[in-house]
Design a binder for these strands. Sequence first.
DNA 1: CTGTTAGCGCATTCAA
DNA 2: TTGAATGCGCTAACAG
Lengths: 220, 220
Amino acid sequence: MSTMKRVAERAGVSIATVSRVINRNGYVAPYLQEKVLLAMESLHYQPSALARSLRRQETQTVGVLVPQLAQPFFSSLGYAIERTLFANQYRAFLCSAEEDQEKESAYIEMLLRQRADGIILVPTGQSLANVERLLRAKVPIVLVDRDLPALDIDRILSDNFGGAHEICRHLIELGHRRIGVIGTPQYSESMARRLAGVKEALREAGIKLDDELRAMGANE
Amino acid sequence: MSTMKRVAERAGVSIATVSRVINRNGYVAPYLQEKVLLAMESLHYQPSALARSLRRQETQTVGVLVPQLAQPFFSSLGYAIERTLFANQYRAFLCSAEEDQEKESAYIEMLLRQRADGIILVPTGQSLANVERLLRAKVPIVLVDRDLPALDIDRILSDNFGGAHEICRHLIELGHRRIGVIGTPQYSESMARRLAGVKEALREAGIKLDDELRAMGANE
DNA sequence: CTGTTAGCGCATTCAA
DNA sequence: TTGAATGCGCTAACAG
């Protein structure tokens, strides 16, 4: 891969000028700009993200660390994030902790070394120590889907209770009485809240949840 | 994040020595090594992959570009690759071309800028130009799952015809006569081959494929 | 408006 | 066995 220096030589300008046309900042005479563009073209030049990141002290990269990429919810979540990042000139490192605290640490260390600008994390019960490590390193971090109540950091959570409650109330208002629940295992925090929401709505309507109409998954 | 220089100061050695203990090459007196290790620990030092890659001219990173990460086959393929890479101290950039030639180009350009050491690609019908671009850039590339017959590069393909043929023959040997086929759309190259394999096995056994027992998906 | 220069953090000669 | 110095490719003052 050719470098800025080669482009500069080919265009007969300094590397500073090349940098200016690449980044569209600073003033460059139109005819010089044209020459630089042509040189870049003919050399198939692509700027080095490495050098740029090192110099700018920012990588335009964020780590996306979920418990299990194999789970459809997390893979579509992860992929949606990567798509949005890419559309905004950011790169994503998709990481799957495999429900393993050690592996989660290993990924976090990797992201630290790569100097990710930030990390989007779906934590598990054992993520606390890892997150504290990130906080010490002052890496911006956002929690998604699951909470870590002990920490005071940004998070994006679903209103599991409220959503389930609302859905169930809607069905009741439509006149339904036999309302069932199908879900992930009950020991999942999210599912427990949804179930509670349903029960609350049923209770408000004076209906009791028929155990026959309740089916919970055996594992996530 | 602290730097090698800070670690060196804290340990009272030169950065060259720090580099040596990090990379376990060159000779370092045990007591110095110990001091360096302690300094790294207390500073929460993590080597910069950026600086290292820039210097070594290798990123330990490979691009994994598939037509659609949302498709289960590709997402599990992509993720399996990333897992294997990570286990071998490599990083993966998972990319989804969304069945779009433009987007595929955009990802390839990104991987070029990131200086990926290589690219694993599941090509589509329109990937030819993009692959030729990679060849010009001399980036190592491997094709997976789908072929690009025009090119002379490494590829990993399934024996769709042979596999389907063998499965079908197995069923026939077990005495079955009513054998059906469920599959992805027939216009998919892979599926067409599998169907041909089945038909061939049936033909050899003097059985004709009952159209009633044939169900093809409407889209991939 | 353009060029020169000084690092970014690291690996690696080359001396000592 | 250790350190000083150079340069990887780029951006951002600064000078002209």
